[in-house]
Simulated scan of single mutants.
Amino acid sequence: MKPAYPLAVTTGQDIWPTPHRSTSLYSIVVQLAAAGQGRFPATLGRAIHSQVLTWLQAGDSSVAQAVHSTQVSPMSLSGLVGRRRKQGTRPDDEFYFRIGLLNGDLLEPLLAGLDTWGTQPISLGNFPFVLRGVEALPGEHKQVQIGNYHLLSKTSPVSDDLSLELRSPTAFKQGKKTIQPFPLPELVFGSLLRRWNAFAPEDLQFSQIEWQGMVSAFDLKTRVLRLEGGPQIGSVGWIRYRFLDAEQARIASVLAQYAFFAGVGYKTTMGMGQVQSLNHA
């Protein structure tokens, strides 16, 4: 396993064990290899989430408890990415998943937990895997990035036309029972604004906004993600938004870049809502 990324990082904000100090954002990639032969479930969102919490627990139990208890998750998680053979997975087939960290203080305990785990077997959906490596430095993997709230808040150029690619099913909870699969601007940027304000330094937080953006073009289709708790419907494809208000365009431009780390909508810790800006791809 590769050595932990060499940063001195601390932990927490609000319910976190110590005051939040890092303003960094991370997207890291966990590389796995199949350790068995056969088939595993099409989606492993709950299993991946549980495994990441186990690694955090190994790195710092108080941080893991804080992450588990918070209402706004400081992480986003992709599904398992890799080749799915028609005849079934074979030993040493390679897979990966991505972890987005909205609180940079989580990096050190997460990497410490991964390092402690070492070569122990990993079970996802009752299928065995082994840890092959962790990519945490930009340039090692196309999905690895490092960001910063201060730098993102100065996103330039500002655009009144913003395009997003929805890479995994994306949907939004409206009320207690209604699920909206179409990414309306107020739902997309409202979701991102809530996450930003939950973890950005206080001086960088935005006031609440009545979004006045409009959808100018899209190519979307609905897709079912069969999670352990039942099937979930969301949209995948691309969509373009237009903001006529200059200040809303500025904030939306910032949040569009933030989406890569944060995810959009609900169940972003289960593989849903994986989104990337097409303006600064």
Rank of each mutant, 00 (worst) to 15 (best):
H68Q: 14
S156E: 12
Y149G: 02
A246N: 07
Y26C: 04
L255D: 09
F261C: 06
E228A: 15
F40S: 05
P169V: 04
T178V: 14
S73V: 11
F182N: 03
L164G: 01
I209F: 11
E165C: 08
E135P: 00
A259Y: 03
Q13T: 10
K142Q: 07
V224W: 11
P17V: 08
G229W: 09
T11I: 08
P74C: 08
D245P: 10
Q212F: 06
A200C: 09
S163K: 14
R194M: 07
E210N: 13
G45L: 08
F129M: 00
Y241I: 06
F260A: 10
T23L: 10
V188H: 02
Q13H: 13
S69W: 14
V215T: 10
T222G: 13
L162T: 01
V144R: 05
M272N: 05
F127S: 00
L110S: 00
L106D: 00
F218Q: 07
L164K: 04
L124S: 01
S62I: 02
D203Y: 15
M270F: 14
Q37M: 06
L44H: 04
A34Q: 06
V158W: 03
R90T: 02
G273K: 05
E135W: 09
L184T: 01
A58N: 14
R83Y: 09
D160G: 01
K86T: 06
M272P: 05
R132A: 04
Q208M: 12
Q51G: 00
E94N: 03
G100M: 03
A198D: 03
A256N: 07
Y266A: 06
G263H: 07
S168P: 11
T119A: 15
G59Y: 12
L56T: 07
G147E: 00
A42M: 08
S123Q: 12
V275H: 05
F95G: 00
L53G: 07
G147A: 05
L166H: 02
N148Y: 06
H141A: 01
T11M: 08
L7Y: 14
A8L: 14
E186C: 05
K142Y: 04
P91K: 13
I146D: 03
V275C: 07
S207Y: 11
Y266S: 09
G133W: 03
T89A: 08
G104R: 05
D105G: 15
F182K: 12
I179S: 09
I233G: 04
L220D: 09
G190C: 01
R21D: 04
V29L: 10
Q257A: 06
I251K: 12
Q180C: 09
T268V: 12
R223A: 12
H20W: 04
L152D: 01
P3N: 11
I239G: 01
V275A: 01
L166I: 02
R90D: 01
L220N: 07
Q57T: 14
M75P: 09
G271N: 08
Q232S: 14
R132G: 04
G36E: 05
S24T: 08
V63T: 13
Q31S: 02
L192A: 04
E210G: 08
